[in-house]
């Protein structure tokens, strides 16, 4: 599903070169819930951005859902993301002026679905995350945990193969954090999504199938998570 082979990513900051990732290889099977962990600057977010098609590698190959992302142009990458990737962010990143349903519906505007079908799917996704009755609320009227659920509904509404989550529990209290982690796990378990999560949160370890530790742009080790999926 996700095949990262010998991937490097170099940023140019003025005259300096920053090696965010160096020769990283990683294979993630379909339906797995995977955590990328490591200290700040370890390259885990860079790796997540490459997998999500937000960025292109300086070297190596990133192949996701059968597509080599390095070959795609800016707008082709946008289409790839719309079709194959759902996004969950640390600060939820809901559109403030749209209500929960409007936010969840957004990615469907990039499909050919009609208005009624879009609305039905958005309501279904909201039901999956347990927020069907809050569909008409604006983000400002929802708690942090509820906003992140809306964001997850938005991430799955197009039925993508992959969901990427960047610090999804970083802005939540303990109770909500656990609920969100359980929800992401269920996406992998029950809906067969491949979920890749960047996190600092040690609670996450109990929910994932495998954990990849990065440090200074290098993949250090891979261990099995508490969900007992059995890593390599």
């Amino acid at each position: 599903m996700i095949d990262v082979r010998d991937v490097s990513r170099v940023y140019h900051r003025g005259a300096d070169e920053v090696h965010a990732l160096e020769h990283v290889s990683l294979f993630i099977e379909r339906g797995r819930f995977v955590a990328l962990m490591g200290p700040s600057g370890s390259g885990k977010s860079t790796l997540l951005n490459l997998i999500a098609g937000l960025d292109r590698p300086s070297g190596g190959v990133v192949e996701v859902a059968g597509q080599r992302l390095g070959d795609l142009g800016e707008d082709e990458l946008a289409r790839f993301r719309a079709r194959h990737v759902g996004f969950v962010f640390q600060f939820f990143n809901l559109i403030p002026v749209l209500d929960a349903r409007g936010n969840v519906e957004l990615p469907l505007l990039l499909t050919k679905l009609g208005r009624a079908e879009r609305r039905a799917r958005a309501d279904t996704a909201l039901r999956v995350v347990g927020l069907a009755e809050r569909a008409d609320h604006k983000p400002s009227e929802l708690s942090g945990g509820e906003q992140q659920r809306v964001a997850i509904a938005r991430a799955i509404v197009t039925d993508p193969e992959i969901v990427v989550a960047d610090e999804p529990t970083g802005d939540l209290d303990a109770k909500n954090a656990v609920e969100i982690l359980a929800l992401l796990r269920d996406l992998a378990r029950e809906f067969g999504k491949t979920v890749v999560m960047v996190t600092h949160d040690p609670r996450g370890e109990a929910f994932v199938d495998e954990i990849h530790h990065l440090d200074k742009g290098v993949l250090r080790d891979t261990v099995a998570g508490g969900a007992g999926g059995g890593g390599a």
Binding site: A78, I95, L106, L110
Partner: peptide, 14 residues
């Protein structure tokens, strides 16, 4: 900015 980034991430074109 963050909102624009989100929309672009979701796949909306430039």
């Amino acid at each position: 900015r963050a909102e624009i980034g989100t929309l672009r991430a979701l796949g909306f074109s430039r």
